[in-house]
């Protein structure tokens, strides 16, 4: 028996929004410790890694580890039927070929359940090596989303240059070029608005704007985002999900031909 309950369906809706642009379907690996998802997009350029810890749920029971392959468009249709403040419970029997979502309104006057067929997904898992990153940038997630959206209008590739002083995002294309420089701030009283940089050595890497835009669909999950970079390794974009876990996106850099 598997059962996981969250008092706010809004959180699960946001998690789904954060992954469904990159993935059509995904396997949710459920165990004692929580729910994990790891999947590459179809073109094998980016990877989504989601962890929802069991202790972050209002109720969590997983007698036997199970993998639930879900079509994310179908899951999205179901979650649209929940109000943001509904309690949501995800249920499955051991070895089941369906999963059930139960939505309960706050006053319990409305209870609905939606059963969805599970899929057998032959998903590849990747071993992600531990990396000591040369640069770790922390900034407001809304600011990152704004920069990516603004710059993507002017080119397909963004160059991210990080030094101790700050981080520069640059794009060039047919129209011309655009640069956004963010300086490290010392907003100790407004930590949520600060830009901080931990740098071992400067890094400059190029990435496809289109993927960064997809990653920013996770913005509603967290006020902060963390970008980790080292030369010649994938970028890691991480959003913490308060008291529940995190979503990390990995993106292979573009290299000069």
């Amino acid at each position: 028996m598997f059962e996981a309950r969250l008092t706010s369906a809004a959180t699960l809706k946001k998690v789904l929004e954060a992954v469904k642009e990159l993935l059509n379907e995904a396997s949710f690996d459920c165990s004692d410790s929580g729910i994990q998802l790891q999947a590459m997009d179809n073109s094998h350029v980016s990877l989504v890694s989601l962890t929802l810890r069991s202790d972050g749920f209002d109720k969590y029971r997983c007698d036997r580890s199970l993998t639930m392959g879900m079509n994310l468009a179908s899951m999205s249709k179901i979650l649209k039927c929940a109000n943001n403040d509904d309690t949501v419970t995800i249920k499955a029997q051991d070895d089941a070929d369906t999963v059930t979502f139960v939505f309960e309104s706050k006053k319990q006057e409305k209870i609905s359940d939606y059963e969805m067929k599970l899929m057998n997904l032959d998903q590849e898992h990747l071993g992600i090596p531990e990396t000591d990153f040369s640069c770790v940038i922390r900034m407001p997630s809304v600011e990152f989303a704004r920069i990516v959206r603004d710059l993507a209008q002017f080119g397909e590739t963004v160059l991210i240059c990080c030094t101790k002083e700050g981080v520069k995002f640059s794009v060039s294309g047919d129209v011309g070029s655009a640069n956004v420089k963010l300086a490290q701030t010392n907003n100790f009283d407004k930590e949520e608005e600060s830009v901080s940089i931990e740098m071992q050595e400067p890094v400059s890497l190029s990435f496809a704007c289109q993927y960064l835009i997809s990653f920013t669909k996770a913005t509603p999950l967290s006020p902060r985002v963390q970008l980790s970079m080292s030369s010649n390794v994938p970028l890691v974009v991480e959003y913490e999900i308060a008291e529940l876990g995190y979503i990390r996106y990995y993106l292979a850099p573009k290299i000069e031909d």
Partner: peptide
């Protein structure tokens, strides 16, 4: 123009 690398160049399949 820079070309897009594949993620599996960096991470091994397990």
């Amino acid at each position: 123009t820079p070309i897009q690398n594949d993620l599996t160049e960096y991470f091994s399949l397990i």
